[in-house]
Simulated scan of single mutants.
Amino acid sequence: MEKIYNEQEIIEMTIQLFKQTSMYEEQYEQYVRRPFRTDFYDDLSPYVKVGKQGYTLQMYERGVQMLNKLTQDVEDVMYWIIEDTIHITAHLNLLRKYEVDNKNTHLKYTKEIMKELTTAMNKTFYEIGGIYQEWHTANRRATLENPLK
Rank of each mutant, 00 (worst) to 15 (best):
K97V: 03
V74T: 10
I128T: 06
T118W: 13
R62F: 09
T71Q: 05
Y79H: 07
I88N: 03
T85S: 04
I113M: 06
K111V: 12
N122V: 08
P35V: 10
Q133M: 10
E99T: 04
K49V: 07
E127G: 08
M114Y: 09
K149I: 14
M23K: 11
G129C: 12
T71E: 05
E12W: 04
D73N: 14
R37S: 09
Y109G: 00
D43R: 10
H91F: 15
S22G: 10
T124I: 03
R141A: 07
I10S: 02
Y41C: 04
L94F: 02
I10W: 03
R34I: 10
N102W: 12
P46W: 11
Q53Y: 06
K97T: 06
G54L: 00
M66Q: 14
N104D: 15
Y47A: 01
Q133A: 12
Q58A: 11
H87F: 13
V48L: 08
P46I: 14
P46H: 08
W80H: 04
L44S: 09
K69W: 05
L57I: 13
V50Y: 06
V50R: 11
R34T: 11
N104C: 08
K3V: 11
P46L: 14
L67H: 03
S45M: 13
D73R: 07
V64W: 02
E145K: 02
S22L: 07
E112K: 00
N93E: 13
T85P: 01
D42T: 06
D43V: 06
T85N: 07
Q72H: 11
K69N: 07
Q72G: 14
Y24V: 08
W80K: 02
Y79M: 03
K52M: 03
N6C: 13
M78T: 04
K149T: 15
S45D: 14
F125T: 04
M13G: 00
W135M: 05
N68K: 10
V32W: 08
E25S: 10
A90T: 01
E112T: 01
F36Y: 07
G63L: 00
E145F: 11
F36C: 00
Q16V: 04
M78L: 10
N93M: 12
V32M: 05
M1E: 12
R141Q: 06
D84E: 13
T124R: 09
K69T: 04
F18A: 06
K49D: 14
T38E: 08
E116T: 00
T38L: 05
E25I: 03
G129H: 11
T118S: 15
M121V: 01
Y109W: 15
